[in-house]
């Protein structure tokens, strides 16, 4: 969670709010923040650390693991209309890569700003080429984009 906290200023610049969720109580969240996370990120965790001891949120989001009584590592990008645009769910031993989450947010923000008229090719980075789907592009993507153009 410290990795998300560390990138919080960057997420805020993109207009993104963060909520973390686990089955620990909010009292344990305080202890974890005060005793460990503040040593990893200056100022500690700057967003709401929500508690879901009964797993209700986890079940609704499909990340509840009833055999272990925990929530899997699940990351959901939700747009301003409350619609889920992207999700990533991982088993516990591997951590997230926040730069990829931020890239996806930027891509979805770009799509939204274009009112859905533009699409982001594989490996798109901010400032990169976007595609404008329409009759002229059918069968002609190869003229403007190739996998070798990925950074």
């Amino acid at each position: 969670m410290s990795a998300v906290a560390d990138k919080y200023p960057e997420l805020q610049k993109l207009g993104v709010e963060v909520i973390s969720v686990s089955v620990d109580s909010h009292f344990v969240h305080k202890m974890w923040n005060d005793h460990e996370l503040t040593k990893m990120v200056e100022g500690g965790v700057p967003f709401h650390m929500a508690s879901d001891q009964a797993g209700n949120l986890g079940r609704a989001y499909g990340v509840w693991d009833e055999t272990q009584g925990i929530e899997l590592r699940g990351r959901f990008i939700i747009d301003p209309d409350g619609v889920i645009q992207a999700m990533e769910v991982m088993t516990p031993p591997v951590g997230r890569k926040l730069s990829e989450t931020i890239r996806q947010i930027q891509a979805f923000q770009h799509v939204r700003a274009s009112k859905g008229s533009e699409a982001m090719p594989a490996g798109w980075e901010p400032g990169g080429l976007t595609l404008k789907p329409g009759p002229d592009l059918v069968g002609n993507v190869w003229k403007v984009w190739k996998p070798s153009m990925e950074k």
Binding site: V16, V21, H26, N33, Y61, R73, I77, D81
Partner: peptide, 27 residues
């Protein structure tokens, strides 16, 4: 229920309608 900046406050997802939200579950 949530821990937030030194206090205990509840958090509701729909209060952030109009903003992008990143929800992160962890073990």
């Amino acid at each position: 229920p949530a821990y937030y900046k030194g206090g205990f406050k509840s958090v509701k997802l729909s209060e952030y309608l109009g903003k992008w939200v990143l929800v992160c579950f962890y073990p």
